[in-house]
């Protein structure tokens, strides 16, 4: 009679987040700031990506007690990250009742070969992607929501732009292809034919796709929305800025009104310094999180 964990309620949950901002928070106080600023959800993790970069070592799932404290403190949805391929971390997060699990390249991958089979979890998953191949592979594994990988913890938007544009170019290419090219395209993209055919027929992904990885300012959020993002994840950008409350509020405003530039200008005034950021050419390939789990 009633059924939980269906594809429709898992994908639908992400649809309800559209046009919103999901903020990384490291404690209850930050979660409350995010909620007050108008975040549609928070991502509970002990260290934001820029701190994970700085700390080095192995980055793992956060302490369940810390995640539960945040779940108790706010009424908006709470997400948390599991390592790529780490089915036990994901089951633990499901057991404590987080609303969404991010199988995330920000953490150190646990499995070089396989992502989590996300289909038989009741809790939905979001995964990162750089192109249509990654997007559809994650959907085939059961992801209910996508986001660009960008380059987390850098405050540099260029990779997120690249990934959003690449996904959209790939979709346009598949949509315009002849029917008899689809088998070959499915082989080239390394994706199941039925999912590729769906993109061919509809001209869009079957799940929402947010921007993530490098959003540091209200203008960055507006840029990504204009490139076709359904919403925004902000990791280090808010709580590594001079004034988290104002940054959080301004990024929410810019995401909801991405073409109202007078309004974004007003929201962007006197915010103080954004997070410092990293020029990507100074990162070696093995320092790039976006290369993980493709």
């Amino acid at each position: 009679m009633t059924e939980t964990g269906t594809t429709l309620v898992k994908r639908g949950m992400a649809q309800m987040q559209k046009g919103g901002v999901i903020m990384d928070v490291a404690n209850v106080e930050q979660a409350k700031i995010a909620e007050a600023a108008g975040a549609v959800a928070v991502m509970a993790l002990e260290r934001v990506p820029s701190d994970i970069r700085a700390a080095g070592g192995v980055a793992r799932m956060s302490d369940p007690a810390m995640i539960e404290a945040i779940m108790a403190a706010v009424s908006i949805p709470v997400m948390a990250k599991a390592r790529i391929g780490h089915i036990a971390e994901a089951r633990i997060l499901e057991a404590i009742g987080v609303d969404y699990i991010d199988e995330s390249e920000v953490l150190t991958p646990a499995d070089d070969n396989y992502h989590i089979d996300k289909r038989d979890y009741t809790v939905p998953f979001v995964c990162g992607c750089r192109d249509l191949g990654e997007a559809l592979r994650r959907i085939a594994e059961g992801a209910s929501m996508l986001r660009t990988k960008g380059e987390p913890g850098t405050g540099n938007i260029v990779e997120a732009v690249r990934h959003m544009e690449k996904v959209n170019q790939d979709i346009a290419h598949v949509h315009a292809a002849d029917d008899n090219q689809l088998v070959t395209l499915a082989r080239d993209f390394r994706v199941p034919l039925d999912l590729l055919r769906d993109v061919h027929d509809t001209g869009k992904l079957p799940v929402v796709n947010f921007a993530a990885g490098g959003v540091a300012t209200p203008a960055d959020a507006a840029l990504m929305m204009n490139l076709g993002a359904d919403g925004i994840f902000v990791g280090s950008g808010i709580f590594k800025s001079d004034n988290p409350e104002k940054f959080a509020k301004a990024i929410v405003t810019a995401t909801a009104h991405p073409t109202d530039y007078a309004l974004i200008a007003e929201a962007s005034k006197n915010l103080g310094a954004a997070m410092r950021g990293i020029e990507l050419s100074t990162l070696s390939d093995d320092q790039k999180m976006s290369q993980r789990g493709i």
Partner: peptide, 15 residues
């Protein structure tokens, strides 16, 4: 009653 039925894992379909 906001979120009256619970969190996301309690989200459901019903006739």
């Amino acid at each position: 009653q906001r979120n009256g039925f619970g969190r996301q894992r309690e989200s459901f379909e019903a006739e």
